[in-house]
Design a protein around this nucleic acid. Structure first.
Lengths: 249, 249
DNA sequence: GACCTTAGTGTAAAATCTACGTCAATTGCT
DNA sequence: AGCAATTGACGTAGATTTTACACTAAGGTC
């Protein structure tokens, strides 16, 4: 029993990778650390888990303290536990990713965050983040890419009413590819997971588009009986290349 | 700083879900616990992680101590951290699943395992396991089902030389469905991931089948350039039902 | 050599996926 | 009022993939 007590000297934390979508870009929320270690560096929002707190509760708490948001999409992704990942001792961290509608959203920096700011994922990936947060971000971004092909999680990133073009741009930003407009629409509509709201966009300087919302109930029904939601990218390489040029230029 | 030290009172463990395949059944290795808590109950093999040990190292260690196997397929799946999941204190556990060839294999029960035994997954799922190990097993089994559809991990469960029928039975056992023989073969062979060994089964009381091995190198090449490996079950409901009857009867 | 068991194979019909071009509705500018 | 600019909406033909399905071949056993 005494030996066992030697093991009870570790801590664990949760880190949230909070994705949002705005102006055609996929973004991630980072905080500028207000305390050592890594003071002044950008980091993923996270915190130590209280001894009597469940992991998911902790992830929700961090999200709430930082953003004021509750009941948003949150999913455990991976646990990072390299021995030397934290300078203060053995701390393993459980990464959660979260998808939020940026529009809903007021950043309310908590005590441990001097400053919170949306970064495009591209920029965050080249930034030097605190701890092993670059690893974590990359892993979670890859998970998002995979997730979005098999579950309609993407809808969590859009406002309640959206156009098909907005939805397509979202998928293109996440998958970093270009999709064919007509095929995308056909595919999405054939799933019957969108509700046609019979409303139109307003105040846009061009032909207004129809607005849709996501039919969650219907999706849950389908999911219950085993249902795969997949989006494939164009098989023609040219399209993909064209998009990569777009990203760079 | 003093407050922070309150957090450093937790421990974490790894639990291994070791899958094997034998006699047409998917199996999982359980140990009968030799010490409290849960003495005498079946449990997943696991251990506390040493303070200076990486998670993956710990998972490999547990596997090695129990089975003598090294360098087998091992993948992190999920972290379980309910506050009350361990009676001795706050212990979160990181679940890894592992795929081994039962043939390779001699169980060498370590100090913490009185007895290790292969259980069919079906039976293990209805057994009352120690801690939250039923949860863990179910989660990992679902992950295996998904994994096997997109990556050729199944090969890890077979001996180095196998027949197409053995491969098909493996998939059927994992997916709990029935697959069409000709379509399965066509699909598998069209991936060009199997090496035809130009050898035949011997000593079987029927027409001997060709032996194949898995072409790992080729797979890694494909994987590197983004490649999806998918097996779908029959869309005709009847086939599935027929198989479910088989499972029950 | 009869019979039992599993191995091995092809095809046609259906479903899905891919590439692609034109007219429509609105705003803003002149 | 008319025109330019912008994005929305839509269908089809050809290619590819998926599905369902049944008979002969090879070896072992008795």
């Amino acid at each position: 029993m005494n030996e066992v007590s030697n093991f009870f000297k570790s801590a664990f934390s949760v880190d949230n990778i909070i994705f949002g979508f705005d102006e055609g870009d996929l973004k991630v929320l980072l905080i500028k650390r207000g305390a050592d270690p890594f003071k002044g560096q950008w980091a993923l929002p996270g915190d130590l888990v209280y001894p009597n707190e469940n992991l998911e509760t902790a992830a929700n708490r961090v999200l709430f303290e930082l953003t004021g948001l509750q009941k948003v999409y949150l999913e455990q992704v991976y646990t990072f536990g390299a021995v030397d990942r934290h300078p203060l001792g053995r701390v393993i961290t459980i990464a959660y990713f979260s998808l939020v509608k940026i529009s809903d959203f007021v950043i309310t920096p908590s005590s441990f965050a001097q400053k919170a700011k949306w970064h495009t994922v591209e920029k965050a990936q080249v930034e030097t983040l605190a701890f092993d947060h670059n690893d974590i971000l990359n892993t979670c971004f890859n998970t998002l890419k995979t997730r979005v092909r098999f579950r309609p999680v993407g809808f969590e990133l859009l406002p309640p009413k959206f156009t098909l073009t907005e939805l397509q741009h979202l998928y293109e930003a996440i998958l970093r590819t270009k999709l064919d407009k007509r095929n995308f629409r056909k595919k999405i509509l054939s799933m019957h997971l969108l509700i046609d709201l019979n409303e139109m966009q307003e105040g846009v300087p061009h032909r207004p588009a129809k607005l849709y919302s996501f039919d969650k109930e219907r999706y849950f029904k389908f999911e219950a009986e085993g249902f795969s939601f997949e989006l494939k990218e164009s098989k023609k390489k040219d399209q993909k290349r064209r998009f990569e040029e777009l990203l760079e230029g």
